[in-house]
Write a protein that binds this DNA or RNA. Structure first.
Lengths: 283, 283
DNA sequence: AACCTTCTTGTAACTTTTTAACAAAAAAAC
DNA sequence: GTTTTTTTGTTAAAAAGTTACAAGAAGGTT
């Protein structure tokens, strides 16, 4: 709670000398946070203990603690909020809004994600014979990204954008295979069917999707992200970023589980790419 | 400037003992601001003057001043810092770290992005006859995502993952075409060649890439994102998320520029998808 | 390997800052 | 007008932070 507001509210409850202190602080808080109790007492024309008592009356432990609260109030406290883009926003506004909304959504996602499930999914992935990532529409690019990540791990990984290929792939799946299905809404019919096919072949189905959705019901494990959908622009934005971050987390968990030796392998994969690149000059 | 970030950036410049202090503060900044210099020294297992020197190295006047800065950073709503995943992190730790690093990178990206260039790119895109999105490797999924977004706008949009297709597509490009090339490093040889081919056909080339890179030199316009590369895990994570957010911004700028009528169109596209989905029950 | 230099770290003394205790003054109550 | 309560300041003590210096570690040189 903002301490500057608190001071103005409390103003009546202060004594005469304490009010003097309040005036000085409100007049110029920036100077106050950089002053010692002695300096502030002099400015307010009161004694030092009075300033201390003033601080205590605001439920702080003493002067240093009060300064801390004051500093926090002054720090332009604009936490990221999901603000929608408006019709007449200029580039500056919508850029800012989209960045902030994205960060706000990630914060929400972070709090809603279930660590336990993540751990279990990582477990499954490390033990899988084959890993498949499927998504449709906007979620296809998320699956695509997952392919990229897991491909580097030198494990059999599969990705199809085509619904028929997805179905065929699932029909040929077996017990030790893990199928990761990505869908924000979890209501895409064909993806639900893919899940059913995979299940009937005893493959393990992991859903990165909305809780309690039709798709979620068909999955062995569900990683749900409670990201507020951005309805304004009619295209998924934040949800997708959250999904990607989740993929990053799974990939990280995967490498950690595999140990140091495995990561040396990763470095080698990266080094291989060097040939196809322009060297970075160090001048 | 956020002092938590400053600490992580400076980390290399610190001495061994100073780094101990840094660790303790980063691990739990909230506790740090409520501790005396003696308590913090004890927690970090160093002497008090070392803590003091640590503060000075961060351009603060001393410990109290440092605490003030720290308090402000925490209040700022962005306690997010780019912390690297450690060998022995559990699911809880790495999940937290990845979410926070991603958010920290977005914050950095937001500050480094050039609004003016965004506006000019949006200009170009709205006037383009045909828009192409090309990327390779990890950036391919970003291009893929861009395809998904712009496809909904009912404009001629092209995406290829195959380098030969990319080249052929560029050979057939003309003056009114815009080619968007995505590459974090900007050092991928084949993508630079694609840029050259496009340029020689008078197409406009926009690069979402690193400033001053070989690719950047071949582009008409460069959207650079100064995201710290995550070298630890040998795979691009944060950079990709920032690129995607940039795509979101371009897409949003695009729709805003096109006006209300155009957005009604978007809604229709979205409604069309409904048939392929399970209805959401409202009970 | 011994020596020197430079950088890092801790100890001890010192200064500043903050807080506690008490007494004087002011205000309020009887 | 006296007593009680509240407010305020003075003094002293405690706590916190800083400086100066010396011991120790690290790195380079002969």
């Amino acid at each position: 709670m903002n301490i500057l507001e608190k001071i103005t509210q409390h103003k009546q409850a202060f004594s005469k000398s304490e009010r003097k202190v309040a005036e000085v602080i409100l007049a110029n808080p920036q100077i106050a946070i950089h002053s010692s109790i002695a300096a502030l007492a002099k400015m307010s024309d009161v004694s030092e203990p009075t300033v201390n008592r003033f601080c205590r009356r605001l439920d702080t432990k003493g002067y240093p603690d009060f300064k801390l609260h004051l500093a926090q109030s002054l720090a332009n406290g604009t936490p990221y909020v999901n603000r929608h883009v408006e019709e007449d926003d200029g580039p500056e506004e919508y850029t800012k809004k989209i960045f902030e909304s994205t960060m706000a959504s990630l914060e929400v996602a972070r709090q809603s994600v279930d660590i336990n499930t993540i751990n279990r999914v990582v477990d499954l992935l490390t033990q899988a014979q084959k890993i498949s990532f499927f998504g449709l529409g906007a979620s296809a690019s998320v699956a695509h990204d997952a392919l990229n990540k897991f491909f580097r791990f030198n494990v059999p990984v599969v990705y199809f954008e085509d619904i028929l290929m997805q179905r065929m792939s699932c029909m040929n799946s077996s017990e030790d295979d893990v199928i990761v299905l990505i869908s924000h809404t979890g209501r895409t019919k064909s993806l639900v069917e893919v899940a059913q096919i995979a299940r009937s072949n005893d493959a393990t189905v992991v859903g990165i999707t909305s809780k309690d959705s039709p798709l979620a019901k068909e999955c062995n494990l569900v990683l749900s992200l409670e990201v507020p959908e951005d309805t304004d622009m009619y295209m998924p934005m934040a949800s997708r970023i959250a999904q990607l971050t989740l993929i990053d987390i799974l990939a990280t968990g995967f490498t950690l589980r595999r140990g140091t030796k495995f990561r040396e392998n990763l470095k080698r994969v990266k080094d291989t790419l060097r040939g196809s690149r322009f060297e970075k000059r160090n001048d």
